[in-house]
């Protein structure tokens, strides 16, 4: 078994904590409690050839008043950057975060377009630009669990390559 540190980042309220909760515990809540600092969970993933234990760092949401503590990214093997499909501005923020991450680390980055149970993924050009910068893009729903498992599995595969 190998261990990997991965991080979930994104604008506030996009559903980072919800995605992790859905993935680790299989539950979802409509209640919104904003995260402060970092919360860590773990999950064992069985890939075809090996087992990977993820230490998942749920990092507090980023907004225009606070950027995230880049120290939290030290030693991270892969990140999931989350955007909210109901809020187009969250995609811009995802782009900015991606730049910050790439400045520091050369690691696989996945874009999670979350809350797709509420609305379709917008199809404008800026969004297309954004998605192209990522290694992988997933349309997810923390509420229904759509693509959550698949996204983390993909991350595990990517960080082990």
């Amino acid at each position: 078994m190998i261990q990997k540190k991965v991080a979930i980042i994104g604008a506030t309220g996009v559903g980072k904590t919800s995605l992790i909760r859905q993935y680790v515990e299989g539950i979802f809540s409509e209640k919104y409690l904003t995260s402060i600092g970092v919360k860590i969970d773990k999950k064992l993933i069985e890939l075809e050839s090996k087992k990977v234990q993820f230490m998942i760092w749920d990092i507090e949401g980023i907004d225009q008043f606070s950027s995230f503590n880049t120290k939290y990214l030290r030693g991270t093997s892969g990140v999931i950057i989350v955007a909210d499909v109901t809020r187009s501005s969250s995609f811009n923020e995802a782009s900015t975060i991606l730049l910050d991450v790439k400045k520091q680390l050369d690691i696989p980055c996945i874009l999670a377009c979350n809350k797709t149970d509420l609305t379709e993924l917008p199809t404008d050009d800026t969004l297309k630009e954004t998605t192209e910068k990522f290694n992988f893009v997933y349309e997810t729903s923390a509420k229904t669990g759509k693509n959550v498992e698949a996204m983390f599995y993909q991350l595990a595969t990517a960080v082990c390559e």
């Binding site: 261990q3 540190k5 600092g37 970092v38 860590i40 969970d41 230490m55 760092w57 939290y72 030290r74």
Partner: peptide, 12 residues
């Protein structure tokens, strides 16, 4: 392992 991660987070 969780304690370890949390400790480093606190440290950070």
């Amino acid at each position: 392992d969780l304690v370890s991660a949390m400790l480093t987070a606190i440290n950070d």
